[in-house]
């Protein structure tokens, strides 16, 4: 894995121009323009139905765009060869529907499929990822018997395995990664996401519900409301009490975390 410092590589890895998405007859996203940078965590926020997940899905071709264009590493998403794209773009699913009794290591091994590693290198990589996510003890357990949080970590290990050979800044999409986790695990996963961005120059895009977690771990917040971007920037700037009142229809108490630029919301 490449160790690049944050400062030397503020490069944009995804460019979205005039993206609109319709599901059925309902417009879900309207005229979205944004760029995603490598080396930072970008959080997508917004109330239910604002289009966060749809935006994430349209950035990885799970949802087709009605108009507009998504470019990944300078090339239009549709023109990418899927197996090439898989090496530098991975998605952690919100719900993992795997019901067949694969062992934990076999699930992580699937992350090797797009890669070209020798068997030995592959095994080493799997062991590394299992260790990194504290799964070594569960290596031989059957996946369906795991708890929700353990399953989530196994999927994360698989997805990180998939990105190990990326020759460009890797792109990692996390769709509500904390929904099945307890408090300590939520922070662990988000801390990992942040260290991947800051230390390994990943571009991490994460859909979150918890505004405090978002402002604590993300470098940039994008707030969506009814399919449009209403606020975009560093946490303190993007999440003002006015924005929250307007978007969530909720009147928050905002306290600045002592000694930091992070707003705390209650």
């Amino acid at each position: 894995m490449k160790q690049t410092s944050q400062s030397q590589s503020q490069s944009s890895v995804i460019e979205v121009n005039h993206l609109s998405v319709r599901i059925g007859h309902k417009p879900v996203l309207t005229d979205i323009n944004l760029t995603i940078q490598a080396g930072e965590v970008t959080a997508l926020l917004g109330p239910n139905g604002a289009g966060k997940s749809t935006l994430l899905k349209s950035l990885c071709q799970e949802v087709a765009a009605e108009t507009g264009q998504v470019k990944v590493h300078g090339q239009e998403l549709k023109k990418w060869d899927r197996s090439q794209l898989a090496k530098s773009l991975a998605v952690l699913p919100q719900h993992a529907s795997l019901t067949f009794p694969f062992k934990v290591e076999q699930v992580v091994e699937m992350g090797l499929y797009p890669l070209t590693l020798s068997q030995r290198q592959g095994e080493q990589l799997i062991d590394l990822q299992l260790d990194r996510l504290d799964l070594t003890a569960l290596k031989h357990r059957s996946y369906p018997t795991l708890s929700g949080g353990e399953k989530q970590r196994v999927q994360l290990a698989r997805v990180l395995t998939q990105l190990a050979q990326s020759d460009k800044p890797a792109i990692l999409f996390l769709d509500e990664p904390t929904s099945a986790l307890d408090l300590a695990q939520q922070h662990r996963v988000l801390k990992l996401a942040r260290s991947l961005a800051h230390e390994n120059n990943y571009a991490v895009v994460v859909v979150l519900h918890d505004l405090n977690q978002a402002s604590r771990y993300a470098d940039r917040l994008i707030v969506l409301e009814q399919g449009k971007i209403v606020s975009d920037g560093a946490p303190a700037a993007a999440l003002t009490p006015e924005t929250i009142r307007q978007v969530w229809k909720y009147d928050p108490i905002v306290v600045m975390e002592p000694g930091k630029q992070t707003p705390l919301l209650f």
Partner: peptide
């Protein structure tokens, strides 16, 4: 065989692993 394994993860997941 590998593609079939990936398909068991779910269709979207198999696509993200680079499968058509």
């Amino acid at each position: 065989a590998k593609a079939l394994n990936a398909l068991l993860l779910g269709e979207a997941e198999a696509r993200h692993l680079g499968l058509d």
